[in-house]
Design a binder for these strands. Structure first.
Lengths: 177, 177
DNA sequence: CGACTCATGTAACTTGTTACATGATTTG
DNA sequence: CAAATCATGTAACAAGTTACATGAGTCG
């Protein structure tokens, strides 16, 4: 697991609240990381208990206190350590493929509906990702250089959805044969 | 989640022990489902408690008792129900991409090593998958027809590793620029 | 006037991981 | 003679999900 590490990475650039981090996950890491707000708050609490982040509380009238987390030196160090360890290949479990594997137990229509849904979903994602890609490409050289690595993660998102789209076409053709 | 459903799918074709199922996962569903033996035994126990599978115990000298699980009518029914529900898109969390995103905090060499490892890993997978693809294509028409759906899941595995390989090349080129 | 934003949490539960444990038989 | 195969489990822990809760301010 490394929600903790993902949080440390985001906190490295600037202190933030759980709320901020949740938005940054959704906006910038959406195509390779998903996290619920509960998990984020929980892991921040644990990181704080471990001394990897510090927490400054701002009281607010009529709202819950705001907790701003900052990376500590210890957090920096453990992030560095993590960066040098080889990552584990991520195991993934895909219910859709289980369903297709067992497709002989149901109507072909059910499968076609699922795959069509998948295709639509990925078409929408592709449109969004390609928009982000254009934004990147129209940047001036210097900020573009700075965004090079995040852009590579976007490229991964694009290649991934394209692979799903090619596969969807293959499967729909095979199911309709 | 649906390890339970994946187990029901495998049990639909024939009764099996936890041990058998673990092997069948590794052999036939390896490219879209991973499960540890502990999880398999645990979920089988739960399915049994829920009445979705029945369990027949064979005593063996010098070995743990063998437990053969069979799908019950209730299990059949819940499998049918699951097949008709839309699947949830599977959220995936990829530590490698987090690392790349934060790559400015470490040496480019570290990143190149990771991506090279990824490429090698996927090249091996591709070779295995393409072997399975050839096996399928050399089947007689009738068994080939029967294996059509599992073959489509293999195709997914192939398109997936190819997408990883294309991306690896892009990233290595960008990191070495 | 309903939905969204800000801002955080608890509680109960399910799922998954890691480490440990047993022990005979077969294969290289 | 070591490793894999057969065959199952417990225990402790970590991670993730789902549902529930609060409550003002703002936008269309």
């Amino acid at each position: 697991m490394s929600l903790k590490h993902a949080l440390l990475v985001l906190l490295e650039s600037q202190p933030a609240t759980g709320y901020d981090l949740r938005k940054r996950f959704a906006e910038h890491m959406g195509y390779f990381w998903s996290a619920s707000h509960q998990q984020i708050y929980l892991q921040l609490k644990k990181l704080n208990a471990e001394g990897q982040v510090s927490c400054e509380i701002t009281e607010q009238a009529d709202k819950p206190d705001k907790k701003t987390y900052t990376l500590t030196e210890q957090g920096q160090a453990s992030l560095q350590e993590w960066l040098c360890e080889p990552v584990k290949p991520c195991a993934y479990n895909d219910a859709l493929l289980v369903k297709l594997y067992a497709g002989h137990l149901t109507d072909t229509e059910v499968l076609i509906t699922e795959i069509s849904r998948l295709r639509e979903h990925n078409e929408k994602k592709l449109a969004i990702f390609q928009g982000l890609e254009r934004d990147y490409q129209s940047l001036a050289p210097s900020p573009r250089q700075q965004m090079k690595l995040p852009f590579l993660t976007l490229r991964r998102g694009i290649l991934e959805v394209q692979a799903w789209l090619s596969w969807s076409e293959e499967v729909l053709a095979a199911l309709r044969d």
